[in-house]
Each structure stands twice: as C-alpha cells, then as structure tokens.
Amino acid sequence: MFWMNTKRIVKYGFINFWRNGFVTLASILIMTVTLFIMGSLIFLGAILDSSLNQIKNKVDINVYFVTTAPEEDIISLKSSLEQLSEVSSVEYVSREQAIEEFKKRHENDQLILQALQELDDNPLGAHFNIRAKETSQYESIATFLENYQTSSGGVSIVDKVNFFQNKIAIEKLSNIILSIDKLSFGVIIVFMIISILIIFNTIRLAIYTSREEISVMKLVGAGNFYVRGPFVIEGIMYGVSSALIALALFYPVTIWMAPLTEDFFGGANIFNYYVNNFAQIFVVLILSGVFLGGVSSYLAVKKYLKI
C-alpha cells in the first residue's frame, strides 16, 4: 500500500509538473534567479576569501640580528618561535643569503657593489621573516620577541623587530580584514534570507492556484500524505530544474567575469574556481533547490489541508 501510494504520488508529481505549464515556467524562472543569487554569494565569498588571504600573506614581521649573533642562538630562537601557536612560518635568511639577495637586488648599481667590495666583512646580519596565522596575532609574536631579548640577559642578538615601525599599518589592516569578513557574512545571510522568502512565496502562489483542487481531494477521502505528496514532488522538481539552469548559466557568466575579477581582486580567477569546485557548487545548489522547493511546498499545502 505504501509503495503503491508512493509510486502514484511520484507519477502525479511529474504529470502536474508537465501539465501546469505556465505556473511551472514562472516558478522555475524565479527559483533560477534566486538560486543564481545564492550561487553568486558562494563565488563572492570565495573571491573575498582569496583576496583577503593574498593581503594577509603580504603582511609579515622581520627580525634582524646583530652581525655577531651566533648561528646556534638564532636557530634556537627559530625553534622557540615555531612552537608558538600563533606562528604560521619562520623563514631564516642567513648572513650569506642576505648578502647574496642584496647583491642580486643591486646588480645594476655598480657604486653599491664597489662599496661592498671595499668592506672586509659582510655588513648584513641574518634575519627572520615571520608569518602569523592571523594578522591580529603579530602583536603577541612581537611581544614574545621583546621578552626573549630581555630574558637572554645582557647581550642581545636581536638588532631590530620591524613590527613596531609597522604596528599601526598592520593593526589597521587586520581591522579592515575583520570588518570585511563580518560585513560579507552579514550580506550573505541577508541575501540568503531574501532568496528563501522569494522561493517560499513563489511556491505558495503556485499552490494557491490549486487550493480548490486540494479541498476536492480531501472531500473524496484522500489522506493528507496522498494530497500533499505530488505537490512536494513538484516543488522538488522546480528546485532541481532551477538549480541545473543556474549551474549552466554560471559557465558563460564566470568566463565573462574571470578577467574582470582577476584585475579587480588581484589573482582570484572566478572561472577556475567554478571549474575546480564544480562538484561542490553542484551539490550545494541542487540540495538548496530540493530542500527549498520541497519544504516550501510541504508548508504551503498545509494551509489548505485543514478541511
């Protein structure tokens, strides 16, 4: 009995989807637009994320050592730093590497190169390039370094930590990143809510046209499950069709947008993101469509079942 009813419900869901031509078309169009907006929010989130990560990666602090600093002390400081939970990476540039890099940077400047040759010893000290996991964590790393200098007693191996020069800029940047994160999350939530309401209302209107039909079904003795079933199947089909159309639309749109976003946001190629994350976007849009279509239909029919 259950399987016979389920088979009939699915059959009528498909038949209604096909026969309610104009209502089906209108519902699919509106759902496509809203699912497209939802998909766009995924892309927007990805672009913002990659842009913010790029900015974050450009921020680091450098620790310059005195030229007389023994290498084993530097290495021991490196391992202490790497044990800190805030530290993402510590790059050690030795005195030799530092001079090589310096020479390379000034290979066209003969005056500087000659001046270097005049010196007996390498004038550059070794240094660290330290990256934190979050931009807000640089301050605590800098504090650790400061304490390290004082606790080493008397002779300090650290010459300069450039965080203190860049402190204001880094703090400002980390505040901006935090605000953008919060704002984009807020915008995404607001658009999601609007999309859900639009889909719910569209389906409600589609089912409103069938309210008489529902009351007749009830009066001929059909149970709630049997009346509601085909509408839920129809809603799910609206969702699946709209999600597939929205997914297909993203192909030309992301191709067109790719150069623009690459220029504007620096590096984030939206088309590559679409291709690389197709399976994920597919699943999110299809599930959103199925869930919103199904649940909206279920709730919209409920009102007319009270006979």
Partner: peptide, 22 residues
C-alpha cells in the same frame, strides 16, 4: 469541483486511488 489538471479518467481514478484501490 473537478480537478482541472486531470482528464475525465484521472478525475474518477483519483477517487479510487485515494481509497487505496489496486
């Protein structure tokens, strides 16, 4: 109060299906 989206056959069949007839 017929169901406009169903044929004559389906309108009658629906009443039987609703009662769980084979």
């Amino acid at each position: 109060r017929l169901i406009p989206s169903k044929t004559a056959y389906e309108n009658v069949a629906f009443a039987m299906e609703a009662c769980g007839r084979e």
